[in-house]
Design a protein around this nucleic acid. Structure first.
Length: 237
DNA sequence: ATGTCGCCTCATAGGCGA
């Protein structure tokens, strides 16, 4: 990951699924990045790395004071509200975890609606754990029983777009299938490009106007011991 | 149902979440 960081030198990097309480801030500082991390033991965890000064606005998603999962981090960097999310997976369908996912998405919609009312320049990025459309997976029939593909989370994802947010990748690549950000470790899924597009950047109108480029970098997925996700990059004017 | 990976613990195997 540090090799990738040094090669690509993004201004900002949003990380999800830290899965531990240790975060190597010193390492990233040596590479020129300040870091803000929200962690918990074993599960979840999100962090923002930035080459520019970062102001932390919130480390929790509103709407449920009893929710202690480390899944949300809202910062401001160079006037842009960058919100890093690790949206609940929700499997198995119909479980308490599925209900938590839907409730979390309703809370996110409420928050994103507020930001729209205030007309803030907002970028929400991260692992949404939602396959928005059929073209965002290699074969819909393989996913019909999965929480990431259910009508309810997909309707809630569309609701976020209806609030006025732009799916950065889809806006620049309309109708293009075969572009994924996640492939299972099983059965050589990556080698066969049997994946899903679940990591997204949603941009408020002011930032959507500045959208220049959005690409998925599949190269890290080919390395030894890779993450099951590939990074998605967005460039703004 | 299964496949793989990485974390955790009443730990060196099995459960859990992905």
């Amino acid at each position: 990951m540090t090799a990738w960081l040094q090669t690509r030198r993004p201004d900002v990097l949003l990380l999800q699924e830290l899965k531990g309480t240790e975060f190597p801030s010193d390492l990233f500082r040596e590479l020129g990045y300040e870091s803000t991390a929200v962690t918990q033991k074993a599960y979840n965890g999100v962090a923002v790395l930035s080459r520019h000064p970062t102001e932390t606005i919130s480390t929790t998603l509103g709407g449920d004071l009893g929710d202690s999962h480390a899944r949300f981090l809202h910062v401001v960097i160079q006037g842009i509200h960058a919100v890093n999310i690790y949206l609940p997976n929700g499997n198995p369908v119909g479980s308490e975890k599925f209900a938590y996912k839907l409730a979390w998405m309703d809370r996110l919609a409420a928050q994103m609606s507020e930001w729209r009312r205030a007309d803030l320049p907002v970028l929400v990025g991260g692992d949404f754990n939602v396959i928005p459309e059929d073209i965002d997976c290699h074969k819909p029939s393989s996913w019909i029983h999965d929480a990431l593909f259910q009508p309810e989370p997909r309707a809630r994802y569309r609701r976020l777009l209806e609030l006025g947010y732009t799916d950065a990748f889809r806006a620049l690549h309309p109708g293009e299938g075969g572009h994924f950000t996640f492939w299972d470790y099983f059965r050589q899924a990556f080698e066969h490009n049997r994946g899903i597009r679940i990591d997204h950047f949603l941009l408020s109108p002011a930032l959507a106007q500045r959208l220049k480029k959005c690409e998925i970098d599949v190269a890290p997925r080919r390395l030894q011991k890779p993450s099951d996700h590939a990074p998605i990059l967005v460039s703004l004017r």
